[in-house]
Design a protein around this nucleic acid. Structure first.
Length: 1126
RNA sequence: GCUCAGAUGGUGGAACUGGUAGACACGCAGGACUUAAAAUCCUGUUCCCGUUAAAGGAGUGCGGGUUCGAUUCCCGCUCUGAGUACCA
């Protein structure tokens, strides 16, 4: 029988499944090898030809390592929590678990189709409760840990408590929040439970914090930085905005240095490491403190009273975490508030008209967001809420009481009037409000208020969403205010001519003098309006505003002005820059634009037209460092700053703590409940905290995440659970450990398995996970190592990025008539320039080697049914069969272009179709044959025939002309052994360096040679089967069985390479004259170089090129080349 | 702007430490088999000049350099792709 790939492939896929051929166990007698593919998300679209590229490579590698005697762990599973299934659920009401299940089934079928050697007994799914139980468990360990800088690792929180009890914060070096308290053991012992818990939360490696997040209103969730591409969500392309929310975060910054250093120890592609290095963004420099100078400050000091910033007191001072008080859901409520403002009740309208006209001399706002409530009217500076109610029902009373209570908690007094009271006697209402206002002091934070004044940057969501930063009273005096800046060029300190701070900087309000207030407010308003995208697009425009204040340069006492400018980013460093116009181009442009001085500080600087950031030359205009070089100056300045207590050396990282939460349904529930406003872990024995059922996958009416809909979902029937779920990266940040011991229900993986498998030896996947999955995984791995659960510092020793497979679109060219209307005539690619045409995508599946299948094309769409063609030959017709002579020989050639693979471009190729036509073995080999694994390339089926022919040719070696299986037991000839051992060596070399494309070529060469030799020797062919089996496993299993073996070929041993067979007696020396090859001479390899030279120089073949000249020099490299120089 | 990767026939690509550039495959051309087609097999196929065969010349994005010898190393440039971006 000819090569029947269909039945062969089915047979062996069945065999592997039934016999669990690829099931592995910990086997300490063999060396381990762990080959892993990046966790796929089972999307509804299934696999296209791009996906299996990496899987095929890793499978070849795994199969190769197996026959090389390794115990290979090669598992597969699904990262099955995620947004697409949930979006689909919202649209259709279908439970995401059902969609996910269906998608996984399809994935599995497609994967099986390709004959992968996965150990399916270890399959994991992140959305299974017995998996996410351990994700939750790890979360609990992280919550229960802090980062001790002295030991440079994470430790259980108990060691921190011990320190607090015995030595106090002075002896604690931790990575923690900025606002931790200085505590003596005596302070700690007097704190109550709540206070202690609140303080500990600032140290925990996962913690609640109000932070600026990337909020995507359309998806209704926050997104990680790496899930955003150019201001839009990666999934779906929806706009993303910055927003303040109370969020779970992970203190990944604690690991910044270890994450950076670890990169030097792992074998990853350089670009990938580079991305991570940039993401971590380490810069070495110094912190310098610039105290506020009397110049601008003292004049104001007298006239200024207390600081009074018109933001609600919510986010301002309290150092207690106040979950659900940060206005988490203002994105939804805000729209409602706007709507309510537009449609006031009659009573509201009457009252607002009076309040607005400043009848009471206090500023009021209407329908304003406080916490998660929209209050009717509020005077923020006095902390008074005025509510106007309609008819009062009992249920309403209860609700109002709750509402009042919470508003009181956050520092507001609430007074109420009925509609009737307002309508009947507005003046009486107003005087009552006035009386209340006069009795009230400005609102105070609930308790334990921080010493810091409230500031706009830390303000609640409202302030930001409204785009307002309101300063009701002018700023305060200089009292001890200083601006810290971070700089990597502390040596340029003498060149500072102004300070620039971010418009969002916390000191803006205090620094702004009354004279400058107007322009500062205007500038802030202007920057607020600019979207992220605008700011990115518009980097050239110089803009800023002077605050009116000055600070003192600590090194020379110079007083320099403080400006705000949007080129300074609030989120980096301290949000303030010491501007050195002579050395920094942005500062230079700014200084030029606003006429600020530019002081050169190095004699080598060229600053006539632009800044010069050089470090060359000697310092000038620079006080104590004049005449020094860069290296000397930096140390001198830092020493001096430390002496003055005005600064110190400092390392800064760009990386921020990772937000750990999604306001979505389809994810792991966070094993946390709230009691008295503080988060607590549920008991370990209560894991898993199962994802509850909900009626809809949408936020609740009050704007809580979908989990808020779950009926009776309370901890111990009392306490609220955390309602957000874990982010997409939670489940994938530790999954490689689960594969080591997938069924374990006592631990995430058993110690022995972890000790045996250790880490991933080879990890294959796309580079798109550079800053997400791959960074978080390294983080969790290091954490788990710190706590002693795992053994290795890095999870993925060797990583390969497979290139992207791009689409290759095909085009037909349609003639247009004089009016530009498309006709029914299509012109072949080569002739299209002679006509006026428009190009149209045509389905690549009806195009082969750029030749259009005319009949299929006409059948593909109604409008093409009557299509006419101008063929490449210039002949015209409506079918290739329309010509008497040369019927069927006319060709319509399509044009092509490389584009993204997508349905809309009709260039998607489904691997199932190709498996159907050529078989899995052919597809596997063809995908490898396309080119180097790491390289991106367009998908193109043009060469697949060649690979298929190769497999048939291989099959023929084992069969006679009538396709009867026939091999001989005769001893192989030397040439046969040579062909075999060449490929044995070649495949070893190629696989070890992941050059799969070159080994496919070499297989072809070997088979061509053996075919030419008419080789049918079992001894040769059997080894060939083993060597080829990682690439084309099905056909090899079949032939292996036909050769009389009863085990799977995957249990065979890779043949040993014997260099003896490759040794040649002669070498055909290429003879070059002046480096140009002219001829070849075959000489024995035993001949010494001098003899070769002698022989070559008197050979007629060579001397005829001499042209009468005498050779000046002869180079002979033994076994390589002879070069004669004339 | 910065960082990284890359540029070789009509196409995908090979040449691993500087040593015969274009392996292997596709496509194309010619031929065999066939009533015909498909399939299969054989021959040729970097370009230019020339041809019976030859012989010659050019050639790995462009311009230089090092070397007996450069696709490979060095310097400068062009283009393509990817990542990143007011990072102080």
């Amino acid at each position: 029988m000819d090569y029947q790939f269909k039945s062969i492939e089915q047979k062996w896929q069945q065999y592997w499944a039934t016999n669990q051929t690829f099931k592995v166990a910990t086997d300490t007698t063999k060396p381990k090898y762990y080959v892993l593919d990046m966790f796929p998300y089972p999307s509804g679209a299934g696999l296209h030809v791009g996906h299996p590229l990496g899987y095929i490579a890793s499978d070849i590698f795994a199969r190769y390592k197996r026959i090389k005697g390794f115990n290979v762990l090669h598992p597969m599973g699904y990262d099955s929590f995620g947004l697409p299934a949930e979006q689909y659920a919202i649209q259709t009401g279908q439970h995401p678990a059902i969609t996910t299940e269906a998608n996984i089934a399809r994935y599995r079928q497609q994967l099986d189709n390709l004959g992968f050697s996965f150990d399916w007994s270890r399959e994991v799914r992140t959305s299974n409760a017995d998996y996410y139980k351990w994700t939750q468990w790890i979360f609990m360990q992280i919550f229960n840990s802090w980062y001790n800088l002295e030991t440079d690792k994470a430790e259980p929180i108990s060691t921190l408590v011990l320190k607090l009890e015995t030595v106090g914060t002075r002896e604690i070096k931790a990575v923690c929040d900025d606002d931790v308290q200085n505590l003596q053991p005596s302070d700690w012992s007097t704190m109550n439970h709540l206070e202690k818990e609140a303080e500990l939360l600032k140290y925990r490696l996962t913690f609640l914090k109000e932070s600026t997040v990337n909020w995507c209103p359309v998806l209704g969730t926050v997104l990680a930085n790496d899930e955003i591409k150019e201001g839009f969500s990666e999934r779906g392309g929806h706009p993303v905005e910055q927003k303040k929310m109370m969020q779970w975060s992970m203190r990944i910054t604690a690991y910044a240095e270890r994450l950076l250093q670890g990169l030097n120890t792992i074998d990853w592609p350089e670009p990938l490491k580079e991305i991570q290095r940039n993401w971590i963004g380490k810069s070495v420099g110094a912190m310098v403190k610039f105290p506020l100078a009397p110049k601008g400050g003292t004049a104001n000091a007298n006239m200024l009273g207390n600081i009074n910033v018109d933001t609600p007191p919510l986010g301002a001072g309290g150092n207690k975490p106040r979950y659900l008080t940060g206005g988490n859901y203002s994105h939804i409520l805000l729209d409602k508030a706007k709507e309510m403002r537009k449609t006031p009740t009659n009573a509201e309208n009457i009252l607002w008209l009076r309040l607005k006209s400043k009848a009471l001399e206090f500023k009021f706002r209407q329908q304003h967001l406080i916490d998660n409530y929209i209050v009717d009217f509020v005077c923020i500076s006095k902390g008074l809420v005025v509510e106007v109610d309609g008819e009062i029902h009992n249920s309403q009373l209860e609700y109002d009481a709750e509402r009042t209570k919470i508003l009181n908690q956050v520092g507001f007094k609430v007074i109420r009037f009925t509609n009737q009271e307002v309508i009947d006697n507005i003046d009486k209402v107003l005087s009552e409000i006035e009386r209340e206002l006069n009795t009230l002091n400005p609102p105070q934070p609930p308790e334990g208020g921080s010493a810091n004044p409230p500031n706009p940057q830390r303000g609640d969501a409202n302030a930001n969403v409204h785009g307002e930063i309101n300063v009701d009273t002018p700023p305060s005096g200089a009292g001890g205010i200083e601006i810290s800046v971070f700089t990597t060029r502390v040596d340029t300190l003498y060149g500072v001519t102004y300070l620039a701070i971010a418009p969002e900087h916390e000191l803006v309000a205090q620094l702004t003098t009354p004279q400058q207030k107007e322009s500062i407010d205007a500038y802030i308003a202007q920057t607020k309006k600019k979207s992220e995208l605008d700011r990115m697009a518009d980097v050239k425009t110089v803009s800023g505003a002077f605050t009116g204040s000055y600070v003192t340069n600590p090194i020379n006492g110079a007083q320099v002005p403080v400006w705000i400018a949007d080129y300074v980013l609030a989120g980096y460093g301290t949000g303030a820059v010491m501007a050195v116009p002579s050395g920094d181009q942005r500062d230079y442009l700014f200084a030029q634009h606003f006429n600020l001085p530019i002081i050169p500080i190095l004699d080598a600087q060229q600053i006539d037209t632009q800044a010069d950031p050089t470090k060359e030359g000697k310092y000038i205009n620079s006080g104590i460092i004049n005449g020094l070089t860069y290296k000397q100056a930096t140390t001198v300045i830092i020493d001096e700053l430390e002496k003055l207590d005005a600064g110190k050396a400092k390392i800064n990282y760009r990386m921020r703590d990772a937000i750990f939460g999604r306001q979505r349904y389809w994810g792991e529930p966070v094993p946390v409940y709230f009691k008295d406003g503080l988060p607590y872990l549920i008991d370990e024995s209560e894991l898993p905290l199962v994802l509850p059922e909900v009626d809809k996958y949408l936020p609740t009416q009050s704007g809580e995440p979908p989990l808020g809909r779950a009926q009776d979902w309370k901890y111990k029937h009392k306490y609220d659970y955390e309602l957000s779920t874990m982010p997409g990266w939670a489940g994938s940040s530790w999954y490689w450990f689960r594969y080591m011991d997938a069924q374990n229900n006592q631990a995430f993986a058993d110690k022995k398995s972890i000790a045996y498998w250790q880490d991933v030896d080879l990890y294959i996947g796309g580079s798109e996970h550079a800053t997400g999955h791959l960074l978080y995984s390294r983080f969790w791995n290091k954490f788990l190592k710190d706590l002693g659960y795992v053994t290795e510092e890095e999870p993925f020793k060797k990583l390969i990025n497979q290139g992207m497979i791009q689409g290759r679109s095909s085009f037909v060219y349609r003639l247009v008539d004089d009016k530009g209307k498309p006709t029914h005539t299509f012109v072949s690619f080569g002739l299209k320039n002679n006509y006026k045409t428009i190009d149209t995508h045509v389905d690549v599946n009806i195009v082969e080697n750029d030749i259009l299948d005319i009949e299929k094309f006409k059948a593909s769409r109604d409008e093409y049914a009557n299509a006419k063609f101008i063929f490449e030959s210039g002949k015209e017709g409506d079918s290739t069969l329309s010509f008497g002579e040369g019927r069927g020989e006319e060709k319509y050639i399509c044009g092509h272009e490389v584009e993204k693979m997508s349905k809309s471009k009709f260039n998607v190729v489904n691997p199932d179709d190709l498996v159907d036509r050529y078989g899995a073995d052919t597809l596997r080999m063809y995908e490898m044959f396309l080119g180097p694994l790491e390289q991106s390339k367009p998908w193109n089926t043009n060469g697949i025939e060649g690979v298929f022919k190769f497999l048939r040719k291989f099959w023929k070696l084992f069969h006679d002309d009538s396709f009867t299986f026939k091999v001989s037991d005769q001893n192989p000839a030397k040439a046969e052994l040579k062909a075999l051992h060449k490929i044995i060596k070649k495949v070893e070399d190629d696989v070890e360096r992941f050059s799969f494309n070159t080994s496919v070529s070499s297989f072809m060469i070997a088979v061509n040679e053996l075919t030419d030799l008419k080789c049918d020797k079992k001894e040769i062919l059997q080894d060939m089967v083993i060597v080829l089996s990682p690439y084309a496993p099905h056909i090899c299993e079949e032939l292996w069985a036909l050769l009389g073996n009863t085990n799977s070929v995957s249990t065979a041993t890779y043949p040993t390479f014997n260099p003896q067979y490759l040794v040649e007696d002669n070498f055909n020396y290429p003879i070059s004259i002046n480096g140009k090859t002219k001829t070849n001479i075959s000489l024995p390899l035993t001949m010494e170089a001098a003899d070769v030279e002698l022989y070559v120089l008197q050979s007629d073949l060579v001397t005829k090129y001499f042209d009468g000249k005498t050779p000046k020099k002869v180079i002979v490299v033994k076994g390589r080349i002879v070069n004669v120089v004339l």
